[in-house]
Every structure is written in structure tokens, then in C-alpha cells.
């Protein structure tokens, strides 16, 4: 009976589509816009790939230790996923591993910026190379992992 109901709804829907194609197209455009706004300003799904966050995966806005998705400072088309190490006003060690800078060098994170680092320090291009990242580039905080691809 339930199945019949679905079928009849579908049939009605199809009939509607053929009868008023323009209205249906407009509704699709509107639906797309709603979905886009939600994805852009509320939350959405992103595929995370690359080795820079290899060993791992808080709803409070911007805390040290949060994982964030940001527009890459080196390429406006790319998104990167990193961990927040320093907030504005913090003094951070540029590179504890001593790879890019002597491990004694410390910098002050300026107002409106964050210090980001990948967890896999030996395979990550992050604030150690491009310096503090403006908060305006942050697109969101990672809240949960939905799925993991088996072979990356």
C-alpha cells in the first residue's frame, strides 16, 4: 500500500513536470540556490585528501587544536585542512622541527590571523612556509567525519 502511494505520487509528479515544465525548472533553480546558501554559510560536506593530516581526524568557534578548512593562501582555487596552533596575540614557535626555520625562532600572531599547521609536519605546507593566515580565509571548522575512503 505504501509502495502504491509512492508510485502514485511519482506519477502525479511526472505528470506535473510534463504539464508545467517552466514552473518545475524554476523550482529546481530555487532549490539549488537554497542548497548553495546552506552549503556556503551553514555547513556542508567536503572531501579531505592528501597526506598532511595523516595521523588524525569542537563546535566552539576557533579554539587552539580545532581542525579548519581554509582557502589556500597560495592558490585561491584550493581548500586546505589544517589544525589551529595559535590564535591572534599568541607567540608561536615557527618550526619546532627546525626544517624551515631554526627551532628557536618565535613569532607573534597578528590581529585577525591564525597560525595553522598540518599534523603530519614533514609533509605539510602550512604557516611555517606562508606565515599566519587571515581569518577571512577560514571557511569552516570540521565537526565530524562522515566516512573514510578505504584506500587513500
Amino acid at each position: 500500500m505504501f509502495r502504491n502511494q509512492i508510485l502514485s505520487t511519482l506519477r502525479h509528479g511526472l505528470g506535473y513536470c510534463t504539464k508545467y515544465p517552466l514552473t518545475v525548472a524554476l523550482r529546481l533553480v530555487q532549490g539549488f540556490c537554497v542548497a548553495h546558501l546552506f552549503n556556503e554559510y551553514v555547513g556542508g560536506f567536503r572531501l579531505v585528501q592528501g597526506p598532511s593530516m595523516m595521523p588524525t581526524f569542537s563546535p566552539n568557534p576557533e579554539m587552539r587544536g580545532d581542525l579548519v578548512v581554509a582557502v589556500s593562501p597560495r592558490d585561491p582555487r584550493a581548500l586546505v585542512c589544517k589544525r589551529i596552533i595559535g590564535l591572534p596575540g599568541d607567540v608561536v614557535c615557527v618550526d619546532p622541527t627546525g626544517e624551515y626555520a631554526p627551532s628557536t625562532e618565535h613569532v607573534y600572531v597578528p590581529k585577525g590571523h591564525l597560525w595553522l599547521m598540518g599534523d603530519n609536519a614533514s609533509w605539510s605546507r602550512d604557516s611555517r612556509t606562508y606565515g599566519p593566515v587571515p581569518m577571512a580565509l577560514i571557511r569552516g571548522i570540521i565537526v565530524a567525519r562522515v566516512s573514510r575512503r578505504p584506500h587513500v
Partner: peptide
Amino acid sequence: LHDVRRGDIVAFKSPGNA
């Protein structure tokens, strides 16, 4: 299109204040 050229007048988010 990511089309920004030399000489364009652009609006951008201030690096110190988003």
C-alpha cells in the same frame, strides 16, 4: 573565473579584520 589582473580595482577582506 579567478580573473584578477594588474590594474583592476578590487574589494578584498582586510587581512586584519575579516
